[in-house]
Amino acid sequence: MVSYSLFGQEEENLNSKKLAVDVADLTVAYRDKPVLWDVDLQVPSGVLLAIIGPNGAGKTTLIKSVLGLIKPAAGRVLIYGKPYAQQRGLVAYVPQRGSVDWDFPTNVLDVVMMGRYGSIGWIRRPGKNEYQLATEALEKVGMIDFMKRQISQLSGGQQQRVFLARALVQDARVYFMDEPFQGVDATTEKAIVGLLKELREAGKTVLVVHHDLQTVSEYFDWVMLLNVRKISSGPVDEVFTEQNLRLAYGGKVAFLTHHTHQGND
């Protein structure tokens, strides 16, 4: 009887409501070449999920099409049970660091306050409240001393922290981050991991495009393996297996397999 209610229709509905991100049949093609093919992804609320896969697997495309930056050929995206367009306020995006020109004439504080532009609305300028939120976020990422610094003078790790702070001020529930560890030093990587775990503890859901297979089980609790099609997704200790890695990367991952979970190690 207990088991009945566990697997019954009612329980399943409840579960689907708790899904932070629910992607179904997502297909994206550039011209005639499919980049994502029929991808489904269910991410429960409150997990730290790594999206991994070889170059050209469509990881960035997945994030961008979920956020509506790329128009998918097919598929739907729900954020907490509703279409993305209605739930924009719940979502924050950290683009790839290299996607902007850091020689743009502005400073750190200004960039972080951009995170509030969505909620400030038209015509109004960032004010005291935005300043307050921005300084708090800069404090969190350890960049408060660089508040007035020109962004052209930042190192790669500092740029990444500024982007993270900008997403933090959005006070979202779901975070999409595109390679936040790319080209940052060990200290920054540790700091970012700490921040990700803090976010999870605060009940947020974080999806991260990740490259370093060796740190997947250390940093994340969920993982999605992607190579145009979804290979697998789920808790790290269930799906981060040698077999799945082979499927995602082809046969060239022998040197990595000792980092995966081999059942009950």
Partner: peptide, 17 residues
């Protein structure tokens, strides 16, 4: 501020709505 964000990081602006 919209033009500034558009010029610096259009994709991010789009994600903000």
């Amino acid at each position: 501020k919209e033009f500034k964000l558009l010029s610096f990081n259009a994709d991010y602006g789009s994600s903000l709505g």
